[in-house]
């Protein structure tokens, strides 16, 4: 089996959780500003998981989701995704536009999802970049609405060059209010295996292997 992933102990996981909290916290407050509602952020989890479990964790390979994806490069590289279930995506569009999307997602609806993802991902990247002291160079975020497995396996393909598992930093970002009930938006951060060493070094944490 391939073993390109760094070995992390409890302290490393704590540090990654903190990186995730800082990014997701900023993303949640930016989203709150956009929507004019309270946005709850669930405590960030850090998990090392085989690819197939990541797909299950996201709700199952065939579950339809709306996802905004960005690849970031710079001192550290990886993928970041904002994933929301299709029902919640519909509720989000309804909340922003006031229009009910009953015949699939309209062009306006796609714009709402795209813009929401841009803000969540952009503000997360900014906070992480400040915290780590790195310049992160994100690509233009792009939106897809499709099966979770199709989207996630694509975003794991770069990591697949080194490993069969990924270290995933996961935060729940859930806008509150009746109009947005049901399910949670998720922010998945998937750094490339080679980036962990640099991330820890920037924060003064040692890593072996």
């Amino acid at each position: 089996m391939s073993n390109g992933m760094p070995r992390l102990d409890a302290m490393h996981l704590d540090v990654l959780r903190e990186v995730g909290n800082i990014g997701a916290g900023n993303a949640a407050s930016a989203l709150s500003g956009l929507l004019g509602t309270r946005v709850d952020m669930k405590v960030t989890r850090v998990m090392s998981m085989p690819f197939n479990e990541i797909v299950d964790f996201a709700g199952g390979a065939e579950t339809p989701v709306a996802t905004v994806y960005t690849r970031f490069d710079g001192s550290i590289a990886g993928n970041i995704l904002f994933v929301i279930g299709i029902d919640q995506a519909m509720a989000l569009i309804r909340h922003v536009t006031g229009a009910v999307e009953d015949d699939g997602i309209s062009e306006m609806g796609f714009s709402v999802l795209q813009e929401t993802g841009n803000i969540v991902i952009g503000s997360c990247m900014t906070a992480m970049s400040d915290f780590l002291g790195f310049e992160l160079l994100p690509s233009v975020p792009t939106l897809a609405v499709d099966m979770a497995g199709a989207i996630l396996s694509f975003s794991l393909s770069e990591i697949g060059r080194s490993a069969d598992e990924a270290i995933m930093i996961d935060a729940g970002i859930t806008p509150e209010g009746a109009s947005l009930s049901g399910g949670s938006g998720r922010l998945f951060l998937l750094p490339d295996p080679e980036s962990f060493g640099r991330m820890f070094a920037a924060l003064g944490v040692r890593i072996d292997g």
């Binding site: 797909v55 199952g60 390979a61 065939e62 499709d146 099966m147 979770a148 497995g149 199709a150 989207i151 996630l152 396996s153 694509f154 393909s157």
Partner: peptide, 10 residues
Amino acid sequence: SVTTLGLGSC
């Protein structure tokens, strides 16, 4: 039968 779910770029 044999199946695989959610192929994207794969």
